[in-house]
Simulated scan of single mutants.
Amino acid sequence: MKKYNWEDWEKAYDAGKVIFSTWKDLSFFRINKDFKAYPVGTFFNESLFVRGYPSIPRIYVLKTGLIRYLSYPFYAEEKIEGYNVRLVKIGKDILAFTRRGYVCPFATDRWEDFLPTIPNFLNKYPDFVICCEVAGPENPFVSEWPPYLKRDIHFFVFDFAQKGTGEFLPGSRKINLLQKFKLNHPEISGPFHPEKDYEKIKDLIRRYHREGREGLVFKPEEKGTRVKYVTPYSNLTDLKVVFPYLGEVDPHFISLRLIRLLLNLYEFEEFKDEVYKTLGTNLFEEALKSIKEKKVFDEVFRVRFKNLENYHALLAHFKQARVNIEIIKQSWENGYFLVEFKKIYPRATQFWGQKLEGWGEVD
């Protein structure tokens, strides 16, 4: 922090780039917009500094993208459809922080169910940050998940980073620690060479597409740029899930996935007939059904908590983030508090409603 003048920090705070946050008896600052050399999601207090998780470039064509960005050897790691959290030990507590630097009440409540060796790990390596993906049909944020997860959620550890610097562990040491502490993790393949192993990597993408997986993240054995690539299946599913909610999302989200899909077919022409058959249905079927019913646009989520206090903290987070929710039902079952709720999307409802009512626009 001493890298910049106090006046710079004050200006950033006044501009909303740095936000004061609390969690129970803890307080810290989080970076809400990129500030100087610090990315969104960086958080800190007088005894802790954790850099935001860096953005990873997405390549559109494997053959040229891998050569352009990656040194070798590198690993190909499953990219899992979920949301990113970082587990950090603060005092006696282990908290889960979201990509934007909020404490996630849900992930903080549930990590111990799936990663029971984490306390031992962080006792031995207290200066590590554990980067995870939370995925599954019973999470409060994401309406897509890997098809092999049928119930509840799971945590997948995909990186270890140093507090302060944010540097990641080299691939072989990461794999060794994942195995030593029996930590659930994404499938990891390799190491690979970008030119010599191109066909092997294509075969991985083919299998992931057939299995309904999202894609791959390519990570060098040592330091260097990382890149990601998603399957045609992932692009098709994104379009199906998001198209009805235009108004809530930038239309650029749609066009980018169409571009990705086109370039998927540039390299994987064997999926052409499947994509042509599926694309129209995925884009229009659910949206058309919702429009015909003239319904309020919403999504239903189901979650389970061990601690009611964390559930109330999630409700407070939704209120702070101005997320409109409606509780459908809640009950205790086998030691967990089960909650089903709707997220209501007024902008999507208005977006389609105005057009159905005959309003026009200049385009």
Score class of each variant (00 low, 15 high):
N5P: 09
W6G: 00
Y13H: 10
T22I: 11
W23L: 04
L26T: 03
F28T: 03
R30S: 08
D34R: 13
F35V: 01
A37L: 14
P39G: 09
G41I: 07
E46F: 05
P54T: 06
L62T: 01
T64P: 05
G65H: 03
F74E: 07
E77Q: 15
D93P: 02
T98Y: 04
G101E: 11
C104Q: 03
P105M: 03
P105I: 04
P116H: 12
N123F: 05
D127W: 02
F128H: 13
V129Y: 02
I130K: 01
C132W: 09
P140W: 11
V142T: 12
K150E: 14
K150W: 12
H154M: 13
V157L: 09
F158W: 14
Q162T: 00
P170C: 07
G171R: 05
S172N: 14
R173E: 15
L177D: 04
F181Y: 15
F181W: 15
N184F: 06
E187I: 10
P194T: 03
E195D: 11
Y198N: 11
K200H: 09
K200L: 13
R206D: 10
Y208E: 07
Y208T: 00
Y208K: 07
R210I: 07
E211K: 14
R213E: 12
R213G: 06
E214Q: 13
G215F: 07
K219G: 02
K223T: 13
R226V: 08
V227P: 04
V230K: 15
P232V: 04
S234V: 01
L239S: 07
F243K: 11
P244S: 08
Y245W: 03
L246C: 12
V249H: 10
S255K: 12
L263D: 01
N264C: 12
E267G: 05
E270V: 04
F271W: 10
F271Y: 14
E286I: 14
E299P: 00
E299K: 15
R304F: 09
F305V: 02
K306G: 10
K306E: 10
N307Q: 13
E309M: 05
L315H: 03
F318L: 08
K319D: 14
R322F: 06
R322W: 06
V323S: 01
I325C: 05
E326I: 01
E326C: 01
K329V: 03
S331P: 00
S331I: 04
N334L: 08
G335S: 09
Y336S: 11
L338F: 14
R347A: 13
F351D: 05
G353R: 08
E361L: 12
